[in-house]
Design a protein around this nucleic acid. Structure first.
Length: 260
DNA sequence: ATGTCGATACTTTATCGA
């Protein structure tokens, strides 16, 4: 069972990119972020024809998450619990049956949080605390689950080309990294870091300033695994070649293979 | 020091978000 996450930065612009990558990578479940369209604007048919079931939680212009699954989707839950006034489409969870057990997969688009001196940073921190509270609930269910997405968090200095340049950024502030560790500390496993200690496993390169050409990247797209999922983790990697394709997203896919 | 891209409203160009 191969589970992937990819912030596509507009699904309308990236439909062919995603279809090409699906054929090459053959994931079973894909969590997409920043689809930047309402549900009706999602090219559902193209992915159904490629053999995937589709769940979408969209929004006009910004944000928006979706999940593609070769397995039938048993349940769908949009929105992160904990704040009924939060209108931003950043969370979608599905349940599938993998063999004889249930597997829950969430597509996460965690708030960026910049600029730090605006209301956007407390929104980010609040969202992270809500995510931890929800992960706690999932943990108590003892179900197997994967929280995959664009976390907008650089976990450590080994995950950024120039830590000093990012010191005051919402993606790398000590409080941001502490919240991320606090999420991990309920018992989740960072799939990439379970598979390699190699630094510079970047998943995002800014469009600006030749960041890709200079490999000035950051690792901000993560798959966090519940204990049962971590027990069957057999591999995790970044499809960085996708960043060199025509009209690329600024993020590339990250995937984990579970022995299910 | 700067460099980009995508969505939108309102236009052939600016603003916002990232």
């Amino acid at each position: 069972m191969k589970i992937a996450t990819w912030n596509v930065n507009s699904i309308k612009v990236r439909t062919q990119n995603v279809l090409d990558w699906l054929r090459q990578s053959e994931p079973d479940i894909v969590c997409l972020q920043e689809i930047k369209t309402v549900d009706e604007g999602f090219p559902r048919q193209a992915f159904e024809e490629a053999g995937y079931n589709v769940a979408v939680h969209g929004q006009k212009s910004y944000n928006g998450v979706a999940i593609l699954s070769k397995l039938p989707i048993d349940e769908t839950q949009a929105r992160l619990p904990g704040d009924d006034t939060d209108e931003q489409a950043r969370y979608l969870e599905v349940s599938v049956t993998a063999g004889d057990r249930a597997l829950r997969v969430a597509s996460i688009y965690l708030p960026n949080g910049n600029p730090v001196d605006s209301e956007k940073y407390p929104y980010k921190i609040g969202w992270m605390q809500r995510l931890r509270a929800h992960a706690d609930v999932l943990m108590r269910s003892e179900e197997m689950f994967v929280l995959a997405g664009d976390y907008n968090v650089i976990p450590g200095p080994e995950d950024v080309h120039n830590p000093d340049a990012w010191r005051d950024d919402a993606l790398f502030l000590p409080q941001t990294r502490a919240e991320f560790r606090s999420l991990l500390n309920i018992g989740l496993c960072d799939a990439l870091r379970a598979c390699t200690a190699e630094p510079a496993q970047y998943t995002f390169w800014d469009y600006q300033a030749g960041a890709w050409q200079k490999n000035h990247g950051i690792r901000i797209d993560h798959l966090l695994l519940s204990p049962h999922a971590a027990d069957v983790l057999v591999g995790c990697d970044v499809d960085r070649d996708v960043r060199a394709w025509e009209r690329p997203s600024d993020h590339v896919p990250v995937w984990a293979e579970l022995n299910l």
